[in-house]
Amino acid sequence: MSNHHTILLVEDEVESGEMLANFLEMDGFEVLWAKDGKQAFKFIDERAGDLHLAILDIMVPHHDGKEICKKIRQHPVVFEIPVLFLTARDEEKDEIEGLELGADDYIKKPASLNLIKAHVESLLRRQNPEKNNWVKFDRVYLDLDAKEMYIDEELIDLTHTEYIIAEMIFQHPKRVYSRQDILAHISDEDKFIFDRTVDVHVKNLRLKMKDEGKLIKTYRGVGYGFNKEFLHI
């Protein structure tokens, strides 16, 4: 199959991890290899929009494979990607627990590289090829299809108008919008818009975003836009 997929590989055994990562990369996959749970969490947080599948060893330092699987299933962006447990633990209860946590497949070590690749390709074929459209800055995710905002794994309860303003600003972070620009964009979306001011909508949006409200800046005398100090996060 033609591969334009990124795989999160969590494996603390250097020789095994290097062999599998190299094998998959030769077949056209991009592999993000984490040698422990902390590094896996970092990849999930920073590269969530790129991930298509995860291969997890259960026994790894800091956060084990089960914890990593749980984080994936609770994450707003990667919660639907296939998860494959690859582990030397062969007790049936471990396999059952892994599947109950949301794993899609379970391979016992030792396993041939070709067998692992076959399982990976089978899982990817079952996936919906249409991935959600996401915009991410810092800890904030916008799901452009569902019209939802998440901060880390928490869904933020925005009004439709607040979401539309956030989407304008996050999709075009180099642009500053005047109040009239924003009003023109949202007036058809919210019939009550003329009963409120744009300033109130932006204030409420920032309050709901808490610490991440810093990403939206007031440009005095102009309007609102993305805080350019954070464009390189």
Rank of each mutant, 00 (worst) to 15 (best):
residue 128 N to M: 11
residue 217 K to I: 02
residue 133 N to C: 07
residue 227 N to G: 01
residue 205 L to I: 13
residue 70 K to C: 15
residue 83 V to M: 01
residue 49 G to W: 10
residue 222 V to E: 15
residue 103 A to W: 02
residue 81 I to A: 11
residue 22 N to P: 13
residue 55 I to P: 10
residue 188 D to N: 08
residue 147 K to V: 07
residue 4 H to R: 14
residue 124 L to P: 05
residue 80 E to H: 05
residue 36 D to G: 11
residue 197 T to I: 05
residue 135 V to I: 02
residue 197 T to C: 08
residue 20 L to W: 03
residue 41 F to E: 00
residue 136 K to E: 01
residue 229 E to F: 01
residue 176 V to Q: 00
residue 221 G to Y: 15
residue 78 V to N: 15
residue 76 P to Y: 03
residue 199 D to T: 09
residue 44 I to K: 03
residue 26 M to N: 12
residue 193 I to F: 08
residue 216 I to C: 05
residue 182 I to A: 05
residue 145 D to Q: 13
residue 213 G to C: 13
residue 35 K to D: 02
residue 191 K to T: 10
residue 15 E to A: 10
residue 15 E to H: 09
residue 38 K to I: 00
residue 183 L to P: 13
residue 69 C to E: 07
residue 89 R to G: 03
residue 9 L to N: 03
residue 157 D to C: 14
residue 36 D to W: 06
residue 30 E to V: 07
residue 156 I to E: 09
residue 64 D to A: 03
residue 205 L to N: 04
residue 45 D to L: 05
residue 108 K to H: 09
residue 123 L to D: 11
residue 50 D to V: 08
residue 141 Y to G: 06
residue 8 L to C: 03
residue 35 K to A: 04
residue 25 E to R: 06
residue 33 W to T: 00
residue 82 P to I: 15
residue 65 G to K: 03
residue 58 I to R: 01
residue 210 K to P: 06
residue 89 R to S: 04
residue 221 G to F: 14
residue 73 R to K: 10
residue 208 K to F: 00
residue 127 Q to S: 15
residue 72 I to Q: 06
residue 15 E to R: 14
residue 223 G to D: 12
residue 66 K to P: 02
residue 106 Y to I: 02
residue 65 G to H: 04
residue 80 E to T: 14
residue 227 N to Q: 00
residue 91 E to R: 04
residue 148 E to Y: 07
residue 179 R to E: 09
residue 18 E to V: 05
residue 50 D to N: 12
residue 130 E to I: 08
residue 136 K to I: 10
residue 108 K to G: 07
residue 96 I to S: 08
residue 181 D to P: 15
residue 74 Q to E: 13
residue 76 P to T: 08
residue 109 K to H: 12
residue 119 H to G: 08
residue 179 R to T: 09
residue 232 H to M: 12
residue 206 R to E: 14
residue 101 L to E: 02
residue 47 R to I: 02
residue 70 K to I: 14
residue 48 A to W: 10
residue 75 H to E: 09
residue 104 D to V: 06
residue 133 N to R: 08
residue 176 V to I: 12
residue 134 W to P: 04
residue 110 P to V: 15
residue 165 I to L: 13
residue 98 G to T: 07
